[in-house]
Design a protein around this nucleic acid. Sequence first.
DNA 1: TATGAATGAGCATTCATTCAT
DNA 2: CATGAATGAATGCTCATTCAT
Lengths: 213, 213, 213, 213
Amino acid sequence: MTQSDPIQAQLIAARRNQILDAATKVFAQKGFHRATIKDVAKEAGIADGTIYNYFENKTGLILGLLERLNETRNRAANLEQVSQGDLQEQMRTYMAHRFETLEAQGFDLLQVLLSELLVDADLRDLYYQQIIKPTYDLAQTSFKQWEDDQRIKAIDPFLSTRIISGAFLGLILLRLLGDTELQERWHELPAAITEIVLHGLLPGENNEQDANR
Amino acid sequence: MTQSDPIQAQLIAARRNQILDAATKVFAQKGFHRATIKDVAKEAGIADGTIYNYFENKTGLILGLLERLNETRNRAANLEQVSQGDLQEQMRTYMAHRFETLEAQGFDLLQVLLSELLVDADLRDLYYQQIIKPTYDLAQTSFKQWEDDQRIKAIDPFLSTRIISGAFLGLILLRLLGDTELQERWHELPAAITEIVLHGLLPGENNEQDANR
Amino acid sequence: MTQSDPIQAQLIAARRNQILDAATKVFAQKGFHRATIKDVAKEAGIADGTIYNYFENKTGLILGLLERLNETRNRAANLEQVSQGDLQEQMRTYMAHRFETLEAQGFDLLQVLLSELLVDADLRDLYYQQIIKPTYDLAQTSFKQWEDDQRIKAIDPFLSTRIISGAFLGLILLRLLGDTELQERWHELPAAITEIVLHGLLPGENNEQDANR
Amino acid sequence: MTQSDPIQAQLIAARRNQILDAATKVFAQKGFHRATIKDVAKEAGIADGTIYNYFENKTGLILGLLERLNETRNRAANLEQVSQGDLQEQMRTYMAHRFETLEAQGFDLLQVLLSELLVDADLRDLYYQQIIKPTYDLAQTSFKQWEDDQRIKAIDPFLSTRIISGAFLGLILLRLLGDTELQERWHELPAAITEIVLHGLLPGENNEQDANR
DNA sequence: TATGAATGAGCATTCATTCAT
DNA sequence: CATGAATGAATGCTCATTCAT
């Protein structure tokens, strides 16, 4: 009936974001289950019922958060440029970038989503298909390429991908679980991970100096 | 009222375990929040009210589960013998053992606990102090020792510990999040992790063949 | 504010009818309580709020439907001509006509209205005064006339009226309650009712053949 | 766990009846939809939640009421004895008895149930199958018997049954709809119905005087 | 101690109604 | 007048917890 689809769409998107922002904040403080719709509405400065004009139900808020995460990630992925320099430099940059992206998302959000993902199988599948799988596939492709170029050893790319992204994910989890010391040295991680992953812990020739050469 | 301490204590412990077993099963199936006390009681074959004779409240069940996990871990740690062989062999054995211990606990339980930990700050602190921190400290001590013995390079033991246990934790999380392929190749992980962590991905002398020798 | 009475009035009446048509359809499908204003508005192709320009509130829609029913009935009553023929013929024709009128109204609508009437005392009184009472009075007058003319026996006209219109109403109710067989033989009812009411079930001289003579 | 099934069953039945009594009262006053569970609980002198220990949900209360109606009816049917005397006497007694049974149930209850039946198709089917249909079948059998015995004319038993029970039902509906005069003369109905149904309205030999003799 | 019926606070969700545009 | 987003009161239902037996 009313004209101006695009303006309408913008208003709707704005309202959705307003609600999701509030949800992020409230869920992070209280956890998804303990937080009430009233809490979220109050935080957003709107009425309870309004939320239901923009989201199917409470779970819809989680879906909305996942969507936003997905969009942000995709946008980030598009911007991601092949970094210059040698492999170690590339990897370090890549890791640093990934960590930054996450930092921008807010660890609170991750905490909430992760907690729900662990509990809700449907959500888990959705997240796995939409976010984890694509990330893997990309990483795995890079690994194969490096392997083909003989820049890295011929180790199983599947397992390597899992192990490295696992380390990544695990460090985040450790931080979420309250490792404050880790938090303080967060910025040192990209270099440290890269160092270990590329050269290993054993003493010998594959040391950093060599690699940088 | 309570005479006969030892027998009483055993009965109480037995009942607590009976309830916790039921809780483990039910929480694993439905998740902590969706599971009701009635569910747990039914599974344990007792009345709802009886649970409250052994646990403060529903959260008490989680605490009880964490406690048991802690005990199991401690017992496992005590049994853990310094494995024979070279460093790689030792590490591989250690990893395999840790994975086995986890496997025995049941991933379902882990899923539930993790989900609650992420949401409940008090629980998180408790878990961090009781389980994560001690594990770190132990691992970090080993690292320092190896470093002193010059069996590994002098990389920051703090970060190394975090990265490796992070990888460990992260891989579990990936599996919990639904990576079925990873699940199928689960037994290959100890060797793969050890290989990467010790020798790195770069081609060179520290290669697997040497290490296996 | 409101100039141009006649045109305005027509527009208003048209819109009211448009809304009531939609309400009839929606209420018939979902029942009054399950149907929402949004449903009615959507069916009418207008906005929710618009309905409130033409009706006080949701109950106002029921009142509006009753009003229309009333008007239709009055119009029908005015058109109702004293049918020719003997008493049985007259009665049969009258009954058939009444059934037809109802049929035209739609049984669904009746179902909805009846359900609300049973629940809402105010509505009930209104309906009783506006529709049921007048119908009675009319019928009762006819009965008295027939009685005076000695065309029927001198039985209490009050009770006779109630019993016969009760039979009428009851048959409708039976149909509304799901008697599909009755529905299939619906057209046979006027004759059957008339036969029983005039001649009775006992075997004897007052049989149909005689009466038709 | 606890012994004494029969006592348990009695307690449960008592509590159910207590709740249904309260529901009858409250629903009759406010109507099913306007009445809240809280209302019913308050009337029954129990907590809201307790209702849900005995009934699935709010609709379950209606089902419970129907069940009780059904049981009462069955019990009444079993007690129903073939009355002595001529056909008119029998019919009059039967009608009077049916009216009494209804009166005992309380018209309020009927009002509530009828209203819901009209709106809820599932409930309607249930009621039709459980109560209306059996009643019909019984009545229709009697009709056929009388017909075979040539005590009544050979009119279609199907339609006759519907018309007479329709009259019955319709009179109740008229009363429910607020016909207070009818209410006052309620006790005269059995005789009046019987008179009309057996002898008809036409003057002639099958007249009341004969029948009453 | 064990029981499980009773409790009632708590919450997601609906939807009639309003009102700024 | 028409719109439809916003409102928020209202309510069915859940379930952790209590306590009389």
